[in-house]
């Protein structure tokens, strides 16, 4: 909730993932509730019948089929021609989207830092398992720029078509190159992402979903193109239980809007019930649109989120 007082921005992979976490991530692989067709042969089983060694099914021979796939053993027993079908192994496209608006730069631990680490962990899992990994950062400021106000925040920045373990460092560099800032127009950003992506796959969207213009339009755009969308709502412990007391002028970190409040027990209670309702509405919206939602605190260990929460959702296996 509160702006993080001091923060050390990560600069390289080791800042994002420790070796212990990497070791825990290694056995994991991406999964999707839907099975999508890949572009390249990967390590992921495809719906397409292909040329892997894994047997899938038999079907009767029709003229024109490749004679190489006739199961001669069955012809010997039944005197009928059957084709032997094998499962095709394909790659899976993983798209990680981060909300780098100024509101992400809050909380203790910092929400954006948490998102960076989760994205890195997911990306790592994807790359290691020979999946195609793309990363997009909505809003945000170039970390190399010193003056946040002078550098224009970009709507989206993307890194596409990473494949293979070698690209892990590229992904880490990309994630560390941006720091949060600016105001996010979620609908515009979602539109850009939806138009620019190719193929199908799993999209994991990290955000707090506190958009004043609403999240509905943007999510509708994202869910439309055959993507399995997983929403990860990251909330800081301070947002869940505000540590503020007394007479305050609350200032929105993004649009500098202020609210004068005198914190009292009924007000805090009202705030928490509002927050719960907000999260509940988001969850219901996601369910209706066939999206998965997981709400996490930013002090959750990254491997716990990846290895337990997302695995339970079926994003990883």
């Amino acid at each position: 909730m509160l702006r993080t007082s001091t923060i050390s921005r990560p600069t390289k992979l080791e800042d994002l993932l420790t070796s212990k976490e990497i070791a825990r991530l290694d056995p994991l692989d991406l999964a999707s509730r839907r099975v999508f067709f890949g572009k390249l042969k990967g390590e992921r089983r495809s719906k397409k019948r292909g040329h892997s060694v894994e047997f899938a099914d038999h079907r009767p021979y029709v003229s024109g089929d490749d004679l190489r796939h006739i199961d001669w053993n069955i012809f010997g027993r039944l005197d009928k021609l059957f084709l032997k079908l094998f499962l095709e192994e394909e790659d899976l496209s993983l798209h990680v989207v981060l909300d780098a608006s100024a509101s992400s730069d809050c909380g203790e631990p910092n929400k954006y830092h948490f998102m960076q680490r989760c994205a890195m962990a997911l990306g790592y899992v994807g790359l290691v398992n020979l999946n195609r990994v793309a990363a997009t950062i909505m809003s945000g400021i170039d970390a190399a720029s010193d003056d946040a106000r002078k550098s224009q925040p970009s709507v989206v920045r993307a890194l596409r078509d990473l494949r293979g373990r070698r690209r892990v460092h590229d992904l880490a560099r990309f994630l560390c190159a941006m720091r949060p800032g600016g105001t996010l127009d979620f609908r515009a950003a979602a539109e850009r992402i939806a138009l620019s992506r190719r193929g199908k796959g799993v999209m994991v969207l990290f955000s707090d979903f506190f958009f004043k213009d609403g999240y509905e339009d943007g999510l509708r755009l994202l869910v439309g193109h055959g993507y399995d969308v997983v929403l990860v709502q990251v909330l800081s412990p301070q947002e869940l239980d505000p540590p503020v007391r007394g007479d305050l002028r609350l200032k929105d970190i993004e649009d500098a809007e202020t609210a004068e409040v005198t914190i009292s027990a009924p007000l805090l209670k009202r705030y928490q019930s509002n927050l719960n309702a907000y999260c509940q509405r988001l969850r219901e919206f996601a369910l209706r649109r066939d999206m998965s939602l997981v709400t996490v605190r930013s002090d959750t260990p990254v491997d716990t989120l990846i290895a337990e929460r997302l695995r339970r959702l079926g994003v990883l296996k």
Binding site: K212, E239, I253
Partner: peptide, 21 residues
């Protein structure tokens, strides 16, 4: 009048809470 300024991620929920109250 002398209120303490606090920067927060969003005033969305606070405004709503005050209005509700």
């Amino acid at each position: 009048l002398r209120r303490r300024d606090v920067e927060i991620s969003t005033t969305l929920l606070w405004k709503k809470a005050v209005q509700d109250l």
